[in-house]
């Protein structure tokens, strides 16, 4: 088997950058949730400060992808490997921004004790963190089964998020004074749910990479 050495080296670099980016995004979500649970504004600020590093990896992926297309002229699956890497990096970049949004909520809370518990938000975030890592793994391994698992996990996240919202709205109705703070918590739920949608997008991209057709997992 003849290999295209230059192209394969480039592809390996792309994969490494995606793993690095995915790890950073997963870390950002974990840190943001820790900051929320401990109301640690300093930790929250560190997440905001680190976001440009995630964005920089996206730019590097975009540059390398463009270079590989221009110089190696890949076709078929090789071309999809590049196109999908670019798409995944932009999903990851959005996920990083949403983690920053969670951190900003913590900054806005400014250390004041929570009137309502954050309920199942840590459990939802835990599932979503697993989704982030597994979505990247599905790209690296070109594993369609793992990609489709994103859709199932996303359904679970959606159900838990809906339940959390119901609890939040009931609490706000009962405790009007808590509305401002509780609204912030419902936003956090929304941000986590959006991150899961992006992980599902990555799953879709991987299915497209492997079979050449676009599924719709975000239903």
């Amino acid at each position: 088997m003849v290999t295209r050495r230059e192209f394969d080296i480039g592809l390996e670099q792309l994969r490494n950058m995606l793993v690095e980016m995915g790890t950073k995004v997963e870390r950002a979500l974990a840190d943001a949730m820790n900051a929320l649970e401990t109301l640690d504004t300093e930790a929250a600020r560190a997440i905001v400060k680190d976001d440009p590093n995630i964005n920089r990896i996206e730019e590097n992926i975009s540059d390398l992808g463009a270079k590989l297309i221009a110089t190696q002229q890949p076709v078929a699956k090789d071309l999809r490997r590049i196109l999908v890497a670019l798409k995944i990096s932009s999903d990851l970049e959005r996920m990083g921004d949403l983690s920053v949004d969670i951190a900003k909520v913590v900054i806005r809370l400014d250390g004041q004790p929570l009137l309502k518990s954050i309920g199942e938000l840590p459990q939802i975030a835990f599932i979503v963190r697993t989704m982030i890592m597994e979505s990247i793994q599905s790209y690296i391994d070109e594993n369609v089964d793992l990609a489709y698992k994103m859709a199932k996990d996303d359904d679970q996240v959606d159900a838990m998020y809906s339940q959390f919202l119901r609890e939040t709205f009931t609490y706000m109705a009962e405790q009007p004074k808590s509305v401002a703070q509780t609204m912030h918590l419902s936003f956090v739920g929304r941000y986590i749910e959006r991150i899961a949608d992006h992980a599902t997008n990555i799953g879709e991209s991987v299915v497209f990479l492997v079979v050449g057709k676009r599924p719709d997992l975000n239903q």
């Binding site: 088997m1 290999t3 295209r4 890949p74 076709v75 078929a76 699956k77």
Partner: peptide
């Protein structure tokens, strides 16, 4: 043929991995 070939040998050839 260039975006989604059916036969693996075609895929290998057009992506320069044939031989």
């Amino acid at each position: 043929l260039f975006s989604n070939p059916v036969d693996q040998r075609t895929e290998d050839y057009i992506s320069g991995r044939f031989g």
